[in-house]
Design a protein around this nucleic acid. Sequence first.
DNA 1: ATTAGCCTTTGACAAAAATCAAAAAAATCA
DNA 2: TGATTTTTTTGATTTTTGTCAAAGGCTAAT
Lengths: 187, 187
Amino acid sequence: MNKIPVIHELYPDIPETSLHLFFDKLQEKTLQKGDLLISEGQICQHITYIQSGIVRSAYKRDDKDITISFSGEGEFITAMSSFISQTPTYENIEALSETHVLQISYSELMALLDQDKNMEHIYRLILERYYISLEELLIFSKFKSAKERYLELLTKKPLIIQYAAVGHIASYLDMSIETLSRIRSSM
Amino acid sequence: MNKIPVIHELYPDIPETSLHLFFDKLQEKTLQKGDLLISEGQICQHITYIQSGIVRSAYKRDDKDITISFSGEGEFITAMSSFISQTPTYENIEALSETHVLQISYSELMALLDQDKNMEHIYRLILERYYISLEELLIFSKFKSAKERYLELLTKKPLIIQYAAVGHIASYLDMSIETLSRIRSSM
DNA sequence: ATTAGCCTTTGACAAAAATCAAAAAAATCA
DNA sequence: TGATTTTTTTGATTTTTGTCAAAGGCTAAT
């Protein structure tokens, strides 16, 4: 009964009892296309693990809506800086398809951290993974040209092209809708 | 004898004995201008806290050298994804001025984590802070225009303008040296 | 002090991408 | 199904930025 395989893969030495403690707190939830996991102004209360489906995370400021990431099966998604500091977020996270998730709440996680020393490993794992994916995102956006970034998205996360609107992908790639449209037609 | 004030500020409840254990492992080090804290190909072995001075972190790929961040007094700097996964990095971190740092090594940190449960709090604090500053960096680069980004750098980190070469600042702001030069002269 | 080398600025031009506007295609709904 | 609305594509134009080349300025070493 391991609901989140990656935890076992990376920390095979966490005792079963601790894993159970953690997994027991997870709440299942199903999101319909368009449902929001969190929206701007809220304080993020959950870390979410995606069992299936695709979600889009976007930042809103000065009436621009910019896609920061697309996440799918096997990934964690959260308004992490809001979760960490328990302050309001600018992020909107929405489901792009029917999405099944597992969630643990901030308060329950904090209680677990006090209760069981092994819990820190699990939370650390999540933080570390989250950090690395963000760093990859940043590097990706700095080194690749518009067309390369589109091609990489196409090969690494083909499902996104299917589910996301062109406008979402364009803002993710830092280009206008028209430019993306031209890149697509030139291939 | 608190060498890293921010730890006390954010986790005032960590027992003195644990703090001592941590602080005792810190190694002081002085870098001269141009010295490298870590360079590409290496596995990052330390988390570094900057007591004074300024450092630049840059990624190298396909003979491009792109500045990812500038860090100064009171900040942590590390090739974090390399540190986490203990794999080689693409990062170069160099001192832009004489810089005084405190370092803890990966192996000692891991030993401490096993030894004292409170240590996890300290490491978590570092990870969380590091995450948040990276997220800010990403958002900053997505929402602001070239000129706004330069102005923000000018007001928030004026020392950098003093110590960093124009080429470093330009790559940080994702623009050519010439464009940055024109922005500067138009103000 | 003078020269050599490097970094920065400036100018002219080319390339890339944004914007504006309209047409075409696709999705939604009565 | 057909009509309406929304999204995507295409075209023309403008703006922004990059590239190349040359000039100017600063630094350091002889």
